[in-house]
Design a protein around this nucleic acid. Structure first.
Length: 728
RNA sequence: GAGCGAUUAGCUCAGCUGGUAGAGCGCUACAUUGACAUUGUAGAGGUCACAAGUUCAAGUCUUGUAUCGCUCACCA
């Protein structure tokens, strides 16, 4: 108390350490109600020139069903730094927020919830399930948005969009129709990656390959020996394939029939000569199961062979398996081997066969390739446009190693199965013929009869892969094709997102953006790495090492979290989030707080219009502006990791430790000109430091700004968030 | 199987176009009513994975080796 009365020049707030919790919410409200998140308001209020350059970012919409994790905190921080920086530099800065229905992801979450309640998704109709999930998501959406606010995101909430809003659906439907008209859409009867648990197909990207050691069996198949890791698929194998040039088998003719004894009795096998048979592999002979293998399907297509389903959609054997019918495949495997052994057809078993098995990325169960007729998009033409745009540098990567991976993927692109057999998503606007299976795009629900066979039609029960609609997100957000935002902000400036979704999302946005708008959706791609725990381990619930951003914010403050996520975090590399590191920046926030307190006190009797001594004038040039320029340059290069570190040292080691220390004696000088010059210098340093720090630590800097006595911020704006970037 | 990346202080990591190493945390000692104990000062600690090469000079460029990680992939 004694202290307080002895320092009358200092606002009371500064007499205590900085308390983030006490002010963060109010500060955010101040920003949001000011309207400055919207560049049009900035123009109206005269803080931005009407003809200023545009700078825009489309936020990767967080999943509306869950709380934010550390990865969200990272992207919010990086993007907010970019937006605040450019806004302060006078650009028309606009950040589009959104939220994602996250199709399959959310449905899985909801199914788990149902399971806990003793219910199952299969008890509900698709309409019922959709309605339930919709309600569930709406409930969580608001909480997710408030977490984004709490991180300081200066995005324009008036422009927020949900991925199931009408505007999105309209664009997605138009794209679907256009793809059909342009012959880029087809219904293929092809192998898909089928998850027997989730009852849906996946694109290749959603399949995870897990290394495993299994048994590998060799069976006598007539005169041949064949090898397989999956005996349970072998019931229908009636083709035996070998390389045409394999000398060992030259006495067999292509198409030759061979009678042989197999699992459930005698069968007739047909010899197929195909280049796919690898003479080096095992005996050089294989049988094929086209329904349940991509490679076998390709061979079957080449030779026009029959194929038959062996395993049903639930992973159980069909009647073709005879006595094994109805069994689960894993259960059946050993029994089938046992039977073949009894029949004397088991040649040998290798115990340690190492291979990688395709699995569902969600449940890790083995993917069962199945043949299913569904919608595919021809990707080659779309990829070629994207590659051309890359060659012309119409978009660039901040980290060029990502560009190589990106290019490689586009050059080897495969067709995209865009249908998912789940309820939670955008329904595919199409009719399917109940007689011939023909599919017809039908946006207006007008088609009543099959265009091929005139048979009856029914609504396609499937929904779009969530990435199909996400891939058109920048178009939807900017209101393609006629919206003002599309005209003013498309292509957007930067796409900042996790490097784990470069193919899922970034590549598709580019391809679909080019396809619909004939222009890339963004000019620069900044891919951040993953956030891990302090030991570098991936955060997961099972490991118990998940760090919730809100927890860190509570302990250290949002600004400290933001700095902890940014400093030394090199673009594109994974980073470890260590609470001790965040704590260091909590101390830093307090340091800035106390620097301000010192300067306020030291300048309380400052004369306006003081001139610099030659020494102080030199300091401004050589130290202050030199540092500002260096930091600005790093930010221009997207090296926020370096900029923030330099800034930290500039403020602490130079401004506080050197400048303020030497000022203590200078402020006592008998020469009034020296004192006045010093006061002005401290003023300049404080204002400049707060501005530089603001993109990184918006809360504490704005809180200080609001408390600053008027004489320290002459000619400055009411909110730091729209203050002019120094020395530019 | 292919591609990419990493290997620098006890821990987590920076180090751009080559000139005898830096940060945060941690550790040691001392200081302190004076903006700030969320402080200050001083200090210990590294043959920059290994080997060879280019160079007057190499964490920094080249090649190879080892270990680790990530991504992609239809090998029966």
């Amino acid at each position: 108390m004694e202290k307080e009365t002895s320092q009358p020049h200092i606002p009371e707030l500064f007499l205590k350490p900085y308390d983030p919790k006490a002010s963060e919410d109010a500060i955010y409200q101040l920003w949001e109600t000011s309207g400055y998140f919207d560049p049009n308001v900035c123009i109206e209020k005269g803080v931005t020139e009407p003809d200023a350059e545009a700078f825009s970012i489309v936020m990767p919409p967080p999943n509306a069903n869950a709380s934010l994790h550390a990865g969200h905190a990272l992207f919010v921080t990086i993007e907010d730094i970019m937006i605040r920086f450019e806004r302060m530099r006078g650009k028309r800065a606009l950040w589009f927020p959104g939220s994602d229905h996250a199709g399959f992801e959310t449905q899985v979450v909801y199914e788990k919830k149902l399971e806990k309640e003793g219910r199952s998704r299969f008890d509900l109709t698709r309409e019922e399930l959709y309605k339930e999930i919709y309600a569930f998501v709406q409930e969580n959406k608001a909480s997710m948005e408030n977490q984004v606010r709490s991180l300081g995101a200066s995005c324009d909430w008036n422009r927020e969009l949900f991925t199931l809003d009408d505007r999105v659906i309209k664009i997605v439907y138009d794209t679907f129709k256009k793809l059909g008209e342009d012959k880029l859409l087809y219904r293929g009867n092809r192998t898909v990656n089928w998850c027997p648990k989730h009852q849906t197909s996946f694109s290749n990207l959603e399949v995870e390959h897990i290394d495993r050691t299994d048994k590998f069996y060799y069976f006598q198949y007539g005169p041949f020996v064949i090898g397989t890791a999956r005996p349970e698929t072998k019931f229908g194998d009636k083709y035996v394939v070998m390389h045409p040039d394999d000398e060992r088998y030259k006495q067999y003719e292509h198409g030759q029939k061979i009678e042989l004894e197999w699992i459930n009795g005698p069968i007739t096998a047909t010899v197929i000569k195909d280049e796919a048979g690898d003479p080096e592999m095992g005996s050089g002979v294989m049988t094929i199961t086209p329904w349940h293998s991509n490679i076998d399907f390709a061979i079957a297509q080449r030779h026009n062979l029959d194929y038959e389903q062996i395993i049903d959609w639930r992973g159980k054997l069909l009647p073709i398996a005879g006595e094994f019918s109805g069994m689960n495949i894993t259960e059946a495997r050993e029994k089938i081997v046992e039977k073949l052994k009894e029949k004397g057809l088991l040649v040998k078993v290798e115990e340690d066969y190492q291979h990688s098995v395709p699995c569902c990325y969600k449940c890790n169960r083995e993917i069962e390739p199945q043949i299913k007729e569904q919608w595919f998009v021809h990707m080659k033409p779309l990829a070629e446009k994207a590659l051309a745009a890359l060659d012309q540098e119409r978009f660039t990567f901040v980290t060029d190693r990502d560009q190589r991976v990106f290019r490689h993927w586009l050059e080897n692109i495969e067709d995209w199965p865009i249908a998912r057999q789940i309820a939670w998503g955008i329904p595919i606007p199409a009719k399917i013929c109940t007689e011939c299976g023909h599919g017809m795009v039908d946006l207006d629900n007008r088609i009543e009869n099959c265009s091929e066979c005139d048979g009856a039609v029914e609504q396609d029960p499937d929904t779009f892969d969530t990435w199909f609609s996400s891939g058109q997100w920048p178009l939807a957000v900017t209101d393609f094709p006629d919206g003002d935002d599309f005209k003013n902000y498309y292509p957007t400036s930067v796409m900042e997102t996790g490097k784990d979704i470069i193919f899922f999302w970034v590549a598709r946005m580019i391809m679909l953006g080019l396809y619909r708008a004939d222009e890339v959706p963004f000019k620069k791609i900044y891919l951040h790495g993953m956030v891990r725990d302090k030991k570098g381990l991936k955060m997961s619930k099972s490991k118990g090492n998940v760090i919730a951003p809100s927890e860190i914010q509570d302990r250290f403050g949002t600004d400290a979290l933001r700095m902890g996520l940014i400093v030394n975090n090199v673009p594109g590399t994974d980073m470890n989030l260590d609470p001790d590191k965040v704590n260091a920046y909590k101390k830093f926030a307090n340091k800035v707080w106390n620097i301000s307190r010192f300067v306020i006190d030291a300048t309380h009797d400052m004369q306006t219009g003081a001139t610099y001594t030659t020494e102080d004038a030199g300091n401004i040039q050589d130290a202050l502006w030199a540092n500002v320029d260096a930091i600005t340059r790093h930010m221009d290069d997207d090296r926020f990791d370096i900029a923030s570190e330099k800034l930290y040292h500039f403020v602490w080691d130079y401004f506080a430790s050197e400048l303020i220390e030497e000022s203590k004696s200078l402020l006592q000088s008998e020469d009034a000109a020296v004192r006045a010059s010093r006061q002005r210098l401290l003023n300049e340093y404080l204002i400049t430091s707060l501005k530089l720090l603001h993109p990184f630590m918006p809360f504490v800097t704005e809180a200080i700004w609001q408390e600053l006595p008027a004489h320290l911020k002459e000619d400055e704006r009411d909110l730091l968030m729209v203050a002019k970037w120094p020395h530019s």
